[in-house]
Design a binder for these strands. Structure first.
Lengths: 154, 154
DNA sequence: GTGTCTGCAAACAGTTTGCACTTCT
DNA sequence: AGAAGTGCAAACTGTTTGCAGACAC
């Protein structure tokens, strides 16, 4: 479902994170690294609560505060992305080492399908030139009703 | 900056809202209509706090609760869209009567530029067919650094 | 050793909700 | 009359923060 890029020539996410922290004069700690590792352990969208639960299941009792303090670091380092805000809280996904993808969301059952499409990258490039922007990324979300939910509506 | 569609053949947003409410067995009230009117009175992104302030400036003392209760109705009716969650709260824009547009966001100064691009609509259409989705809309946000912020970084 | 980080608990902010009263039909 | 809506204030929930002790460098 979510293909990885060829990692052979890439730094690991841990290396990237350590370099990011060092460059900011911040420390690499067991807590931060455990959070990072857990974030990359599953290929699904997640929220802070789920992440904390997963850490607990590993026997790691990392405080809520530390997780909340670490999330912006992961985002700033480019390893993780805020995907959408829903049900009163933010949802994230890790993006490092994965091809860029967009989201197709069913407004009926709330199911989310990922897809890739090169055309969006081209649009992005053109817009960047037109507006003199240095583009670093994009988010495309398409929404509607999946087949099952279309039938339910009738 | 943000061109309107040709309104001559369109229902007004008020008509749309009234029909939406009626169809849901809900009432059209002065509060709901004042909120709707104020939402369509300015062509900018806004948040609930700003909206309440603008209503106050009109001498309308509509409670926070009513505004919070009305926002989901405006979204559900398709008149308004949630644009992004930032600084701890949601930001909206009205979309009825306006061509669809996307957002280009500067990560440096947080400035947001709107743009239109037909290619995205085509992508949307194709994805809908591939996935058997009935597409109702999309959100594309491209981010990066504007020219001024690129220079600042050097 | 020094400055950063963690965990805790309290604080905060946006949003939701229960309730008594009002309003629309 | 009855159902639905409003305003108020309290409750709720996700997130942030101050502080004392712990730890990385």
């Amino acid at each position: 479902m979510r293909p990885s890029l060829n990692h052979s020539k890439m730094k690991s996410e841990l290396e990237v994170f350590r370099e990011f922290l060092e460059q900011k004069g911040m420390r690499s700690t067991p807590e931060r690294e455990a959070i990072l590792t857990e974030v990359f352990a599953h290929h699904d969208h997640f929220d802070v609560e789920e992440l904390i639960m997963r850490l607990r299941h590993q026997g790691l009792r990392i405080s809520r505060a530390s997780v909340y303090r670490t999330m912006p670091l992961l985002v700033e380092s480019g390893l993780v992305q805020e995907v959408f805000f829903e049900d009163g809280h933010m949802h994230y996904e890790h993006i490092y080492g994965h091809e860029h993808h967009c989201h197709l969301r069913c407004l009926g059952c709330r199911k989310i399908i990922e897809f890739r499409n090169g055309a969006v990258e081209e649009v992005e490039k053109r817009i960047g030139q037109d507006q003199q922007f240095e583009i670093t990324g994009h988010k495309l979300e398409i929404y509607g009703y999946c087949q099952a939910c279309q039938e339910k509506k009738d």
